[in-house]
Design a protein around this nucleic acid. Structure first.
Length: 634
RNA sequence: GCUGGUGUAGCUCAGCUGGUAGAGCAACUGAUUCGUAAUCAGUAGGUCGCCCGUUCGAGUCGGGCCACCAGCACCA
């Protein structure tokens, strides 16, 4: 006689064992219809789940986040069923839920085409309409392996065979289609109404590039049609913000075949770069960093000593001269150690902080290249802090604070923190790893921020904190990093004289805030959809004459703005004012000044802001004061 | 690197079954001198990604390569 406690605190008693569906029905017919699953004592179950004893029960509907996930998961099954009906020879593998949707991987003799997708989606809708009941059953592991082998699903059999022997396996069936699955699932296919297949792409079996490549079909699924439409609109919006597209439209940079993965910065793009670089240079200066500059090319033997040759020689650009081999630097730290090594360092000099806008080249695989986001030639705001073990914590805390300030300057308020720990392929002692991982964790705890652990994702020479920022449309970009390195200073012979006059090896901290300048500018472009804030905008003000009569005045106004330190230009073309406004609006200039006879006579400018707001006429001094305060505010 | 797709004027794109290229915008010239998101007219602009092949003839068909796009793998 189970007593069921509902989320509102009320308790209902049932005469005997009762299913989640029956509980929903007893509460109301509407809830019974909406029920997708149940939550019994915090555990998600099917609506067919039968309670034998007292429990806390919640009915999960599409309004719950878990409900949406179940909907998506069941839609992945629906996809697999449709594919098997249309292409019986296809083999199923896995079909998990991902952000905004799901995918399912298939093995098939040929790739699926866009036309196939249309047919599959149609079949999915047909199956959903039949409202087939979804039924769960359990088997022992060996039975399940035998079952999937018997129906020719060798990938499924392989997955199940890797599950521990004792576990029971749940299967879900709808119509004449059965899949291995932990569940839960919706009670019937009729619950699946709002979905859309998005694309096909290759994906390796079990995520390993040595394995066979499968066909992955991506889809999206939602509770309501309006949500799907909103999602599709968001994708369109993201496409409009694409930095590659805006880079062309706003004439910021370009890339071309002769230099894959390398950037040609145009005058306007380079102006943005300079704003970012000058800002970061101020950050170095104001926080105890000394700016340095190392050479682009260093001898191969040096990279052998650092361990990079062994780990990354495939992705280093190499060159030779006379009898010696060189590599174009893929990172700046060895150069900084060589600078450190010139001269005897005392413990009194530590922490010693070097910063460089270091230009690096890495021969990234062709398939990885992506606009400014993944390039072969990039520039890091790379800093290295030489310190003692006792100073690590303090430096990490200070760096985290600094990074938060810089991200705020650039307009990013949300930061995601992760600590990446020792990978399988690594150098250095376990004690050193232990100690440095601890220091990173403690630094974040001291900074009072929430963080997650990423086991095995550290660099080969040390663990790291990864700092990611969230952009204007919610995407997360990893930019900043703080890495402890107990190995490289020793490998390159760095040392300092301690208080007891002994020679010790310093710890090196690798740190970056914006990371790659190229990528960060790409992120800025997308974050602001090209409409950069005043201090970053490549062109800040345009002065537009209405007729030729105001040309000399417009020129003078633009010149005075430039003298005041702003990036101003004059548009004196013989075009209608509305034409000029349209052009400069498309170029996303923050301010447009209209000067006609009225303004010229009064010595004023008529101010139009980006977005169309008309601020009316004001004196040039008043306008300059406004610009100054806006630019300083960041 | 792997799977699939794409590559035509500065940009966006059209060009059916092979018969030596077309539009809009931009550019240039002229007219217009105009008050808050496109004035009118004219002109010029292309080794159709590159190489090889099939053919009387290739932007179009076949092969190879390159680059880009999506995803996977990778990312010191």
């Amino acid at each position: 006689m189970p007593n069921v406690k509902l989320p509102d605190g009320s308790v209902r008693s049932y005469p005997g064992p009762v299913t989640v569906a029956e509980i929903a029905q007893s509460i109301g017919a509407g809830l019974a219809r909406a029920a997708l699953a149940g939550k019994v004592d915090g555990r998600l179950v099917d609506t067919s789940f039968r309670l034998e004893s007292d429990a806390e029960v919640a009915i999960v509907t599409e309004r719950d986040p878990e409900g949406l996930e179940i909907l998506r998961h069941s839609t992945a099954h629906l996809l697999a069923q449709a594919v098997k009906e249309l292409f019986p020879e296809a083999q199923v593998t896995i079909g998990p839920v991902i952000e905004n949707g799901f995918y399912y991987d298939f093995s098939y003799k040929r790739p699926f085409t866009p036309e196939d997708l249309v047919a599959i989606e149609k079949r999915m809708a047909e199956i959903a309409k039949k409202d087939l009941p979804v039924e769960r059953r359990v088997m022992s592991r060996d039975e399940a392996v035998a079952f999937f082998s018997s129906i020719g699903e060798k990938y499924k059999a392989e997955i199940i065979a890797s599950i521990p022997e004792k576990e029971t396996i749940s299967l879900y069936g709808q119509g004449n289609w059965v899949d291995l699955c932990r569940g839960p699932h919706v009670p019937s296919t009729g619950k699946l109404r709002v979905f859309k297949l998005m694309r096909v792409a290759g994906a390796y079996w079990r995520g390993d590039s040595r394995n066979e490549m499968l066909q992955r079909i991506y889809g999206t699924a939602w509770a309501k049609k309006e949500e799907l439409d909103a999602h599709l609109r968001m994708l369109e919006e993201a496409e409009k913000r694409d930095h590659r597209r805006l880079g062309t439209q706003l004439d910021l940079f370009h890339m071309q075949e002769e230099a894959p993965g390398l950037v040609f910065w145009h005058p306007k793009g380079w102006t943005i770069w300079q704003q970012v670089e000058q800002h970061m240079r101020r950050v170095y200066r104001d926080n105890g960093y000394l700016e340095v500059r190392g050479p682009q090319i260093l001898e191969r033997r040096l990279w052998e000593r650092t361990g990079h040759w062994e780990n990354f020689k495939e992705s280093m650009f190499v060159t030779a001269s006379e009898n010696r081999d060189y590599a174009i630097k893929p990172m700046n730290c060895p150069g900084h150690i060589l600078i450190y090594n010139k001269g005897v360092r005392s413990y009194r000099d530590l922490p010693l902080r070097y910063g460089e806008f270091g230009s690096c080249h890495r021969n990234e695989p062709s398939g990885a290249l992506h606009g400014l986001m993944r390039v072969r030639g990039f520039t890091q705001d790379d800093g290295h802090i030489f310190c003692t073990e006792d100073q690590i914590l303090e430096e990490c805390v200070a760096f985290t604070t600094l990074l938060q300030e810089v991200y705020r300057d650039f307009g990013f308020s949300e930061i995601v923190y992760r600590v990446a720990t020792r990978p399988a392929k690594r150098i250095g002692s376990d004690e050193a790893w232990e100690k440095s991982e601890k220091a990173l964790v403690e630094a974040l705890q001291r900074s009072s921020v929430a963080f997650t652990m990423a086991a095995g994702e550290g660099a080969f020479y040390g663990p790291k904190i990864e700092y990611s920022l969230k952009d204007g449309i919610g995407r997360v970009w990893q930019c900043g990093t703080m890495q402890v390195d107990f190995s490289m200073p020793g490998r390159l012979g760095a040392e300092y004289v301690a208080a007891d006059n002994a020679r010790r090896t310093p710890v090196m901290l690798h740190r970056a805030i914006v990371g790659s300048m190229e990528r960060f500018i790409g992120i800025l472009i997308e974050h602001y959809a090209g409409a950069l804030p005043l201090w970053l905008a490549p062109e800040q003000v345009v002065v537009m004459s209405i007729t030729e009569r105001q040309a000399p005045y417009a020129k003078r106004v633009a010149a005075r703005l430039r003298e005041a330190g702003f990036r101003a230009l004059a548009d004196l073309r013989n075009e209608k004012i509305s034409y000029k406004i349209r052009e400069h609006s498309l170029q996303k200039l923050p301010y447009q000044l209209v000067v006609g006879d009225k303004e010229m006579q009064a010595g004023n400018v008529a101010v139009r802001m980006r977005g169309g707001e008309d601020l009316g006429a004001m004196s040039l001094d008043a306008f300059t004061a406004r610009l100054r305060s806006e630019a300083n505010a960041r």
